[in-house]
Write a protein that binds this DNA or RNA. Structure first.
Length: 749
RNA sequence: UGGGGUAUCGCCAAGCGGUAAGGCAACGGUUUUUGGUACCGUUAUUCGGGGGUUCGAAUCCCUCUACCCCAUCCA
């Protein structure tokens, strides 16, 4: 785990510490209407991960409130995904549909309280009545129905007496709410549909907003974690739970940013399109970001888990670079899997001076991987190397075999090219070479220096295999539609050659094909007769990068132009106030502006000014500190008054306390309403300005931080803040910062 | 045009008034029988812009800008 915890963990920790909850309970609540993808993995890791870290528990709950889109095949896929990622849920899967009876009762309770009604507007009318984001909506006339009538209607809805869409149950909240979600949200709709779990027992189904919060409550969830697009729904979440006056404790909802990655689509709709349109081969196509896809491609659960840890959790919409995921799988596989040799594009090499055959010892792991294991590699006169590893006219910096440059066959001998055989088209069909008998791997006495060691297979004993080379599904970084598909996302190589041990010994399912990448025996199509390997990810390739980077020019970076909008002009009264403040009272225009535009601030300011006449100091504290309090509260909700502000400022004015302390005192005053003089007295916050007291403290700090002293003297003047900060810290903020500054600067000279 | 969010390096992301963490990517170098790995080093005088408060601001205040979400009987 990373050292710094994310904001969700911070909240959970605080809630546990404060005793708000005894134990943390989370849930992963997918709707079973699609295959889980790596975005779900992020959510799984967050929910199950937090439960694990804080010794709580996490439930897997299918949010199955919409019978028309959901299916049991998706619940299986979801269960698989969670299991595969290594999380357990005591083998009990929860379903929102299990709570349908309870949910129904809660709805009845709401009706009885007069907080819900049966509406009989049709769909279109409901939309119209809802208004728009800028215009308020209006309430349906049916909202006036009596409790009895609502109860009766709702029961008959449940019994199936009405057709789909005839009535709905709505919460009675506020049709003019600025939050559109609060304009009498729908709670239940009639659906004569077969539900994959409850069959035909229900004719009404709860909506997300009603079912989710209550399911959380029923299960005893403490922290209901969801993605950003539900921020607007939090108000209903709270409304339902609060209005029902449920016995505490109740859950609270927190939102985090969903995962998006470049070169990838994550929406259920787009994924479905790819599958149904046969752009890919099913939900487990290795090019898909589905869990099933990654699993089939050969990704390990650990790599996905690590990836999720590395990207963090926050509230900013962001797009993670797929390179980050690719790093995670490479990093995981590097220390785990055996290295073997596979030639993807075979080029025959005949070693003219070699006769017979031998079996060479070859370790499965390089020296830097602490694992044991080896196999025998057959070697004889005819071998294959990769076409890429020979070049008749090599570019500068080419390390492999050329007519002039020998190369080592990894785990075997050094060979030198003697002749290049070509067909009529000029295509190289074979290399005639000679090997150096004394250059055998492990006992090389030849003294020949080679630039690299390449992979090879013995022609007689190599096994033919199919290799599926996967690349990014999209060639566009932010894919929109099918036009952005990468036409080369799948390349099938039917005649790759792999060394025999891979097939006969099967040391693993995943391999590094040396110098190529990581590969996985396809769990579906692999047979002993026809082995199939999927490319999981390539190795980092600084050679091809070097070749490429010599060509294209760097992209031009256009800096965004910052447009400044127009400031709303002041009205007459505000302008008059502003003029008075800047003129008569000598405030700076920014502070005057803040005060003049806010009647609450200006009234408080003037009132305190009448108590203590220090216009600038007072203005500063009102425009800065008081303004903050007034952001959340109304004037009459404040625990302090103008007189107390004046009192505080007076202490600053006569230098009883420093500005820093004043802020601290202000905060307490705002919280408790205590008199500032009282706070200063009881806490002993009077400013220390006597150099005789401050000086030894500075000496001590200087003695304790010789490194920083050296850095400071070397020119890092930012460190002045460090030293001042340390002194203030040790004096509890009471040291006079001006004095400290002077003293520190002096001593460090 | 209302409400709710978000802005810190090419991509993620810490930071909560006192020296701008870390990872990925990139670029150098060392080691290497993988152009891999590992290891070392370089990359933000600056936190969306502008003001203000403060001895000191990414952090507090004001203001502007950009992007995301909300008007499904979806979740």
């Amino acid at each position: 785990m990373s050292e710094s915890k994310d904001f969700l963990r911070t909240i959970v920790e605080e809630d546990l510490k404060s005793g708000k909850y005894k134990e943390v309970v989370t849930r992963f609540p997918p709707e079973p209407n699609g295959f889980p993808h790596i975005g779900h993995a992020k959510s799984i890791v967050i929910n199950f991960g937090i439960a694990r870290d804080y010794h709580g528990c996490c439930y897997l709950r299918m949010d199955d409130t919409n019978p028309t889109t959901e299916d049991t095949k998706y619940v299986e896929a979801l269960k698989d995904a969670v299991h595969w990622l290594g999380f357990d849920w005591d083998d009990t899967v929860y379903y929102t549909s299990d709570y349908f009876p309870k949910l129904y009762d809660y709805a009845v309770a709401l009706i009885k309280m007069g907080n819900a009604y049966v509406d009989s507007l049709n769909e279109e009318e409901i939309r119209e009545y809802r208004g728009t984001v800028t215009e308020p909506g209006k309430r349906s006339k049916y909202a006036q129905r009596s409790v009895e009538e609502n109860l009766d209607l709702f029961e008959r809805m449940k019994k199936g007496e009405f057709k789909d869409g005839e009535h709905v149950l709505r919460a009675k909240i506020d049709m003019s709410a600025a939050n559109m979600q609060m304009r009498d949200p729908l709670l239940y709709r009639i659906r004569h549909a077969h539900h994959f779990r409850t069959g035909n027992t229900w004719a009404v189904y709860p909506m997300y907003d009603f079912a989710h919060c209550l399911s959380d409550y029923i299960e005893g969830i403490t922290h209901s974690l969801c993605t950003l697009e539900f921020e607007n729904n939090r108000d209903i979440y709270d409304w339902v739970l609060d209005t029902l006056e449920l016995e505490p404790p109740r859950p609270y909802q927190y939102e985090f940013a969903r995962l998006s990655m470049n070169y990838t689509v994550m929406s259920k709709r787009k994924l479905l399109e790819l599958v149904e349109g046969k752009y890919v081969n099913g939900w487990d196509d290795p090019r898909l970001p589905t869990i099933a896809g990654y699993k089939r491609r050969g990704y390990t659960p650990e790599s996905i888990l690590n990836f999720c840890d590395q990207i963090g959790v926050a509230k900013a919409n962001s797009t993670v670079d797929v390179a980050q995921l690719e790093f995670a799988i490479r990093d995981d596989l590097n220390t785990k899997v055996p290295r073997v040799m596979c030639v993807l594009d075979p080029l025959k090499v005949t070693i003219e001076n070699y006769e017979g055959s031998e079996a060479l010892d070859a370790s499965y792991y390089p020296d830097d991987v602490p694992k044991e294991g080896s196999r025998k590699m057959p070697f004889s006169k005819e071998i294959y190397i990769d076409r890429e590893d020979f070049n008749e006219n090599p570019p500068k910096g080419y390390y492999r075999l050329t007519p002039e440059q020998p190369v080592r066959l990894k785990h075997a001998y050094i060979i030198t090219c003697k002749e290049v055989i070509k067909d009529a088209d000029g295509k190289i069909t074979e290399i005639k070479a000679e090997y150096h008998p004394e250059s055998k791997s492990g006992s090389d006495t030849s003294g020949i220096k080679v630039k690299s060691a390449i992979q090879w297979v013995d022609a007689a004993q190599a096994k033919k295999v199919e290799v599926r080379l996967y690349d990014r599904l999209y060639s566009s970084e932010a894919p929109e539609g099918m036009e952005d598909l990468n036409p080369n996302s799948l390349q099938v190589i039917k005649n790759a050659l792999v060394e025999p041990a891979v097939i006969t010994e099967k040391p693993d399912e995943r391999f590094q094909f040396e110098r190529e990448g990581y590969f996985y025996a396809d769990p579906v199509d692999y047979t002993d007769e026809k082995p199939v390997f999927n490319k999981i990810v390539g190795l980092k390739d600084s050679w091809s990068k070097k070749k490429r980077s010599s060509e294209p020019a760097p992209k031009p970076k256009a800096k965004k132009v910052q447009v400044d909008g127009e400031v709303v002009p002041m009205n007459e009264a505000e302008q008059a106030l502003f003029d008075k403040y800047t003129g008569e009272l000598g405030l700076n225009s920014e502070v005057a502006n803040t005060l003049a535009r806010d009647t609450q601030l200006s009234s408080l300011y003037e009132e305190s000014l009448s108590v203590f006449n220090s216009p600038v100091l007072l203005a500063n504290i009102v425009a800065n500190e008081v303004a903050r309090e007034l952001k959340e509260k109304q004037l009459n909700e404040l625990k302090f008054n103008a007189k107390q502000i004046a009192q505080l400022v007076k202490m600053v004015d006569d230098e009883t306390i420093s500005n820093k302390i004043a802020k601290q005192v202000f905060e307490q005053m705002a919280k408790t309403g205590e008199d500032p003089t009282q706070i200063v007295k009881t806490k002993g916050l009077v400013q220390i300005s006597d150099p005789a007291i401050i000086s030894p403290i500075i000496d001590e700090i200087i003695a304790k931080n010789p490194d920083n002293v050296a850095k400071f003297k070397a020119g890092n003047t930012k460190l002045l803040g460090f030293f001042v900060g340390q002194v203030l810290k040790t004096t509890g903020g009471k040291a006079n910062p001006k004095v400290v500054n002077e003293l520190v600067a002096e001593k460090l000279k």
